[in-house]
Amino acid sequence: MNQDKRIRVLVAKPGLDGHDRGAKVIARALRDSGMEVIYTGIRQTPEQIVDAALQEDVDTILLSILSGAHGFLFPRIMELLKEKGLGDILVLGGGIIPEDDVPELKELGISEIFGPGMSSQTLINYIRENLSQG
């Protein structure tokens, strides 16, 4: 009866690339693991993503990006999150992100980057473990 706090995840695609197959597969996998997944669709601005995270009171944000614009979009999203007092949300990245860029993104506060070939169970476990710590 007593509903455990359900994990709420925002799956968002910032920027201009319109390929969301990967994001949808991930959204589906998270759903099947019992999480509530808010999917916002493609071509989201950083402002839209942060507003959605704020209103939906999510625990985690998954940013999927294939366009290569992560170096511009991710810092903006992290900045807006802090501005709105949402610094405690677990932010993860995925899609096509060169390994060389990862340290810089982690410095911004993005906890982990999940590239192609990663199993969805790895991601699910990562979210569960990191949220229970917080």
Binding site: R31, G34, M35, V37, I38, Y39
Partner: peptide
């Protein structure tokens, strides 16, 4: 599973 995909914002 108790999970949900909430897609109305799209």
């Amino acid at each position: 599973t108790g999970g949900a995909l909430l897609g109305d914002r799209v």
